[in-house]
Design a protein around this nucleic acid. Structure first.
Lengths: 128, 128
DNA sequence: ATAAGGGTTCCAGTGACTGGAAGGTCAAGG
DNA sequence: CCTTGACCTTCCAGTCACTGGAACCCTTAT
C-alpha cells in the first residue's frame, strides 16, 4: 500500500503518518522508487495509534501502549496504570474547564449585552 | 516598578510579561538603564490579562477584550459575544473530554489489571 | 511530449509560553 | 575601589503534535 491508501483506511492524514515514521512509531518499508510501502501490520499499528490519539493519549503514551500491544508477555496492569493516569488528567482538565464555564456563564448572564458600555464581564476581568 | 515587582503583584512570570510586550499587549516605559518601567496602568492591564487568561480566553481574545476595556464607548454586546463564543468552545471541549473519560472509564473497569497479558484496553485500541 | 496526480524531502509556523546562555546594571559589604 | 550576588537585558531554542508549502521526482494516461 502507498501512503494515501493507508491514509484512507486509517483516517490519518499522510502528513501525520510521515510524522509518525519520523518519530519512530512505525517503520514502513520502501519501494525501489523510494515510496513508502505499508503492510497490514502497519495498518493495524496506525489504526491503534489513531484510536489511542482520539482517546487523548499523548504520543509518548502511545509509544508505550504500542510496545505493550506488541509484547505478548505484557501485564495488563501496566496498561491499566497508564489508562488510569490518563483518565485522572482528563478529569482534572474537565474540572478546570467546568470551573471556567461556570464563571463565564454567570458573567454572561449578568451582562446586558446592549449598546451601553457598562459591562459586568469587563468589570470582573478588571477587578481581580 | 521593575519587572519582578509587577510580576509579584500580578502573579505573572517576568517571561510572560516580556512576551506580552513583544506581541504588543502592553508597552512599558524604559528607564535610562534600559530596564522596563511599569506604572499602575500597566499593572491593571496585566491583571486584566491574567484574569482573562485564567478564564481561558486566547491571546487574540484578550487583545480584543483589552481594547474594549480601554474603549469608553464600547457596547457591552461586543464583549458578551466574545464571551459567549468562548463559552461555547469550552463546553464543546468539555463534552469531548467527557466522552473520552466515559470510554476510558469503561475500559479501565473491564481490565483485570493483573499479571496476565489479556487486556480489554489494548483490545479496544486495536479493534477500531 | 505533456499534464495530472501521485510520491519524496525539508523548512517554517502554530499557541503561549519557558529555559537557558551571554552579557549589562545596581546596591551592599569588605 | 572591588567584588559578589541579585537584578535586568536580548536572543535563540524547545515545547506538542502536527500542518502548510515549496521544490522536486515518479507514474500513468492521453
Amino acid at each position: 500500500m502507498n501512503i494515501s491508501q493507508i491514509a484512507d483506511k486509517t483516517g490519518l492524514p499522510p502528513k501525520t503518518i510521515r510524522y509518525y515514521e519520523e518519530i519512530g512509531l512505525i517503520t514502513p518499508d520502501r519501494g525501489a522508487n523510494g515510496y513508502r510501502v505499508f503492510t497490514d501490520s502497519h495498518l493495524h499499528k496506525l489504526a491503534f495509534l489513531g484510536r489511542a490519539r482520539t482517546l487523548g493519549f499523548s504520543i509518548e503514551d502511545c509509544r508505550t501502549l504500542l510496545a505493550l500491544y506488541e509484547d505478548d508477555t505484557r501485564a495488563s496492569a501496566d496498561v491499566k496504570a497508564i489508562a488510569r493516569q490518563h483518565l485522572k488528567q482528563i478529569k482534572e482538565k474537565i474540572a478546570q474547564l467546568q470551573s471556567m464555564a461556570d464563571t463565564l456563564g454567570h458573567l454572561i448572564k449578568c451582562c446586558a449585552g446592549d449598546n451601553r458600555p457598562d459591562c459586568p464581564i469587563l468589570n470582573d476581568l478588571a477587578r481581580h
